[in-house]
Design a protein around this nucleic acid. Structure first.
Lengths: 320, 320
DNA sequence: CGAAGTTCCGCTCATATGAGCGACAGTTGC
DNA sequence: GCAACTGTCGCTCATATGAGCGGAACTTCG
């Protein structure tokens, strides 16, 4: 009936509360409190335990901003991430969410990038949103990790993400104009030999932090999927492709899936991506649960910027 | 602008929250946390300080019942009381408040009275309410401290408070039937020599805990005031009478006021009351602020059972 | 560029604290 | 009446913790 299991009567209750106030709010030591109330310090400790377990003292952790720190923490430890930022952005328009998460990711990047870092950027709309929101960055080199994939009819005007970010940072930019995938391996080979491309690629090994999006191998859930022919999509799906991270395809366990397409891609390879110390993915949408899990399990991604809904789903899926 | 002064970015924020959760909610030690996050224990301590001062960690003390523990604590330390129970009873009908406070006082008494105590009861409606609510009490002697003062037209049917409480306790009752005040000193003298009265009075010195009401020397604020002739009321007011506790009259500083009436009272004296180790007063109503302060200052009362409104007023008045 | 703050960090050492123990009192069941 | 049980208390001793310090990195001026 009574919720307060510890207290036997009002005097006990008030005493416990007094002790708790002095300890938790006034910051006095248990020894001091014990002296003040003529109790043993053990008694004080037991009263405080009672106060905690009976709910007389309630401790809450949270903050007034848009970051759900508790959820971020849980997601971080559940997936073993390096960094994790979960915003409580409502699940409305993709563009809105992208903007929110982009801003959150920009804040994160501003905070964690040091002058010793080398920043890699993949081509994704969420990365572009981040670039837009970015206002300050340590002076680091910025390296383009993949070719661009402009979708017909959609002008993102954001092929210059790398250049923009480098301008904010005040560091050198290693970028190139090339598509993410081409029709045949020979063309890809040729492109990779282009001076700008080759120079950017030569820097990939020294990248210390990268930002990418994660796509699920489904319609509308990956720019690369949408740009790939139907037959090839199906073939790749048959081979177990589950997620696409900056052009790198992995199956549900996070293992890279090699295929014809791999040869025709202009961009970072699976091994190179795994070698980057920190890859931050900006992801949103319920549909991407398994793709994100795959990317994390495969070691492609080790930090996340996402929203509450997906975070909860990820935790649930990872725990089962 | 930002309330969280401590955190410089989302990563810092999430880290601080994680550390705080492990420390405050999971009960891990700072050393453990330091190891887990590869920080020095000092850094952990500083993060926790930040978390506290920035409001990321909020600690509240309160409980779901009717006792306002925080206010009780503050009133207790402000007035230097032994015990204090403040309920958040709304200020409605006096009878309702009396019943609530009576129940609270009964709980308090049940809790703090030990078999070694001797209990003294004064005559007051609030004490009667307490007796009604009392359901359990250590087997102690119960001593009547004053004569009764039945008001014309009000049948309290509670002249037997002492007998009732003693029955609940299972201890001996020392009670008598006599009025609180009589028209002349000689009659008072004679009454005091009555065997029952004398026997009860002889126990007053051994009383260890007493329960009383506190009256303000104003109309409707003291049964004794209302029962006293107008001339005498005024004369006593002129002498500075501010409060009445179980028939004992004190001025605003708590000093006893001796007068004709004193000689004509049947009950405990000021000196005897001050000698009782713990006198618990049950008081309600905004009008009694100064009376209660006087009673406490004079050492007549050293524990209080009251309601939030009066408690706040008492704290405000005592602090000024 | 150099000097004077300013902030952050991790150290030492005295103190505060917790785990676990045995003593003791009150309760229960025979 | 007595024995087992239960809950409370305060102890010891190893560990956790805080106050205050000095050094290093970074800022801010001249």
């Amino acid at each position: 009936m009574a919720i307060d299991s510890g207290a036997r009567g009002p005097a006990q209750l008030v005493l416990t509360a007094s002790v708790a106030r002095r300890y938790y709010l006034d910051g006095r030591s248990k020894v001091e409190i014990a002296q003040e109330f003529a109790l043993s310090r053990f008694k004080v400790a037991r009263l405080l335990e009672d106060a905690r377990s009976s709910g007389l003292v309630r401790i809450e952790i949270g903050h007034p901003g848009s970051v759900d720190v508790e959820l971020s923490d849980r997601l971080m430890s559940t997936l073993g991430l390096q960094h994790c930022v979960v915003t409580d952005t409502p699940d409305d328009l993709p563009a809105t969410m992208r903007a929110h998460l982009g801003a959150a990711a920009a804040d994160l990047l501003t905070e964690i990038v040091t002058p010793d870092d080398v920043l890699g950027l993949s081509w994704a709309r969420s990365v572009s949103s981040m670039a837009t929101a970015l206002q300050r960055l340590a002076p680091v080199p910025v390296v383009q990790l993949t070719g661009a994939l402009a979708r017909p009819g959609v002008d993102d005007s954001s092929i210059d993400v790398v250049r923009d970010v480098a301008r904010v940072a005040g560091g050198p930019a290693y970028f190139f104009y090339a598509p993410m995938s081409v029709p045949d391996a020979a063309t890809a080979q040729a492109l990779r030999r282009q001076p700008e491309v080759a120079q950017a690629f030569s820097r990939i090994g020294s990248v210390t932090r990268a930002v990418a999006g994660v796509g699920a191998w489904e319609p509308e859930q990956s720019t690369l999927f949408d740009a790939t022919g139907e037959a090839e999509r199906r073939e790749l799906a048959r081979q177990g492709v589950c997620a696409e991270i900056s052009g790198v395809l992995v199956d549900a366990d996070g293992n890279p899936v090699r295929s014809d397409l791999t040869e025709r891609m202009i961009g970072i390879t699976a091994d190179q991506m795994r070698a980057v110390p920190e890859v931050i993915a900006i992801v949103y949408g319920r549909a991407k649960v398994h793709a994100v899990l795959a990317a994390v399990r495969g070691g492609m991604v080790n930090s996340l910027v996402t929203h509450s809904t997906l975070a909860e789903l990820l935790i649930a899926a990872a725990s089962s």
